[in-house]
Amino acid sequence: MSLRPSDPFARRPAARTPAALLAALALALPTAAPAETPEERGYAVAARSDRSDRGFADSSVSLEMVLRNKAGREARRTLHIRTLEVADESLGNLSLVVFEDPPDVAGTALLSHAKILESDDQWLYLPSLKRVKRISSVNKSGPFVGSELAFEDFTALELEKFSYRYLREEACGELTCDVIERTPRYEHSGYSKQVAWIDQKVHQVRKVDFYDRKGTLLKTLTMDDYREYEGGFWRAHELRMVNHISGKSTDLLYSDYVFGQGLGEDDFSTGALERLR
């Protein structure tokens, strides 16, 4: 996903394709490899970044969202997010988002069983009725709980969900970044393309520009405060999405990451939704 690797919704990488193998080969043996096309080089950069997150098993994290309008007025959301990496490479990850604040929606939960190129399976849990409701996930480009993030920004950043093109190398803060363009392959995406900055040191996404379906620059996401966790997994803890059209912004502040708690599929079933709070 585009927010990967800090994105707790991140799916596991898709099966290695011949292109991925080719790219890996090209990386391993740069002098022996045939000349790379911009598409192959872009894919290789994205794949290396994606692969750096393999094997995290499961994670759990708190997220505070700060929603700001043009005048600077703030509203806050607190969520708890659990993710289970699925071993089968043809499937996406399982994730569970539980709302904690504001208090009127506390206990509301969203369960997603991600897919690679189809719509995800999603269930919403409404605690006031104790009702589990299967919902449509075909369109993920609308605002997520009033924020500047679309649900797509959390879930659609799977390696195989995009096609890639290498653009250039560029300084990004104290680091040097590869700049790649990625075009969504999911037909219902709200974006025509995205441009991502990935650093050459630890291969993490530092910035993403989102272009709407008309090709206009819509939003920019910056990802800061990367920390390395045991097992070599990197997570950004401060993210900011700015909407250039509306002037609104959303900050995402992640805290208390826990990895490898031994979560299982049963923890991500519809039956588990009522015992989450």
Partner: peptide, 9 residues
């Protein structure tokens, strides 16, 4: 029973 078919439930 529910059949979730794109935007149709």
């Amino acid at each position: 029973a529910q059949w979730t078919l794109g935007a149709w439930l």
